[in-house]
C-alpha cells in the first residue's frame, strides 16, 4: 500500500491541493507555493496540461515535489495526450522516480484548450487506463506480458457528481471501481447539496470520495471554505481537493482556511 492509500485509510479525512506546472521551464514558483502549503495538506496533485493547455509535463514537478516536500504527490495523466505505450511508460517512470499515486483521467478535449488543432489520442479511455495501471501494479502489461519489477501504485479517478443525466456516469463509475480506482476526486462542486444529492442517487461507491472545492479568486475563498466545512461536517466525503484556477495566492489562502 502506498502511503497516500495508507493516509486515506488511517486518517479518514484527507486534504489535497492542485498545482499546475508552469508554461515554461522555471519550476521555482511552483516549488515555492508547494513549500508554503505542503505541510498543511496530505497530498499535492500535479495537473497534466490542464484544460488541454500546454504546460511542462507533470512528471518533473511531481518528482521534484516527492523529493523535497513532506506531502504525498499525486501525478495526473490524461488519455488525451498518450497512447497505451506512453501511458504505461510514464507510469513506470513515475513509480521509479518515487511518485506512486496516480490520477488517471480522460482529459478535457483538445478543442477546449490552446491547441485546438492537435490530434487527440484517447487510445485508451480512463477505465482502460486504470486497467493498464492496475495490471502494471500486478506485474504485467495490457497483453499479460510480465514486467521486470512491478510498481506499487495507488490509483485514483475523476468523478462528476453534478453531470446529468447521472445514470450513464454511474455506469462509468462502477467500471472505474472495477478497474482498480482506489479513490475518487470530484470535479469542483457547486455546493455541499450537489454532493448530498449525488450520494443519495449513487449509493455506496466502495471507495473514498475527495470533494472538489474551488475558489476562482481571493474573494471566493470564504465561500469555498464555508462549503468545505459543510462537506466535512456533513460527513459527505472522505477528503477535500482544493484548487484555485491556477492562482497561487488564492490557493494558499484556501489551504490556509481548509488545510489541516
Amino acid at each position: 500500500m502506498t502511503s497516500f492509500a495508507q493516509a486515506i485509510k488511517d486518517k479518514g479525512f484527507v486534504v489535497t491541493a492542485e498545482l499546475d506546472p508552469p508554461r515554461g521551464v522555471d519550476l521555482g514558483p511552483l516549488m515555492a507555493l508547494a513549500g508554503r502549503i505542503g505541510a498543511k495538506v496530505d497530498a499535492l496533485v500535479v495537473s497534466d496540461n490542464q484544460g488541454a493547455n500546454l504546460r511542462q509535463a507533470p512528471w518533473w514537478a511531481a518528482h521534484r515535489l516527492a523529493e523535497t516536500i513532506p506531502a504525498e504527490v499525486i501525478l495526473t495523466l490524461t488519455c488525451r495526450d498518450r497512447n497505451r505505450l506512453s501511458l504505461g511508460g510514464d507510469i513506470l517512470a513515475a513509480a521509479a522516480s518515487g511518485v506512486d499515486n496516480l490520477l488517471l483521467v480522460s482529459g478535457d478535449f483538445v478543442s477546449l484548450g490552446d491547441h485546438p488543432q492537435a490530434k487527440p489520442v484517447y487510445d485508451l479511455d480512463s477505465v482502460q487506463a486504470l486497467m493498464l495501471a492496475n495490471g502494471l501494479a500486478q506485474g504485467h502489461d495490457l497483453n499479460g506480458q510480465e514486467l521486470a519489477g512491478a510498481p506499487e501504485l495507488c490509483l485514483g479517478a475523476v468523478l462528476a457528481p453534478e453531470a446529468r443525466p447521472l445514470a450513464p456516469q454511474l455506469v462509468k463509475l462502477r467500471k472505474k471501481r472495477a478497474a482498480g480506482a482506489g479513490f475518487f476526486i470530484t470535479r469542483p462542486l457547486s455546493g455541499p447539496d450537489a454532493l448530498k444529492t449525488f450520494l443519495q442517487e449513487a449509493g455506496e461507491l466502495g471507495a473514498p470520495i475527495i470533494a472538489g472545492v474551488q475558489a476562482k479568486n481571493p474573494e471566493g475563498v470564504a465561500a469555498a471554505a464555508e462549503m468545505a466545512k459543510a462537506i466535512r461536517a456533513g460527513g459527505l466525503a472522505q477528503g477535500l481537493h482544493l484548487s484555485a484556477s491556477g492562482d497561487p495566492e488564492t490557493l494558499a489562502s484556501l489551504v490556509e482556511a481548509c488545510g489541516r
Binding site: S106, D108, S111, P120, K172
Partner: peptide, 20 residues
C-alpha cells in the same frame, strides 16, 4: 464521442450535451 470513450461518458457532459 469526440474522445471515443467506449466504457461510458467522460465527466464533461453538461445536461446531456458534449463538452465540445
Amino acid at each position: 464521442c469526440p474522445k471515443g470513450m467506449v466504457n461510458g461518458p467522460c465527466g464533461g457532459a453538461v445536461e446531456g450535451r458534449c463538452e465540445t
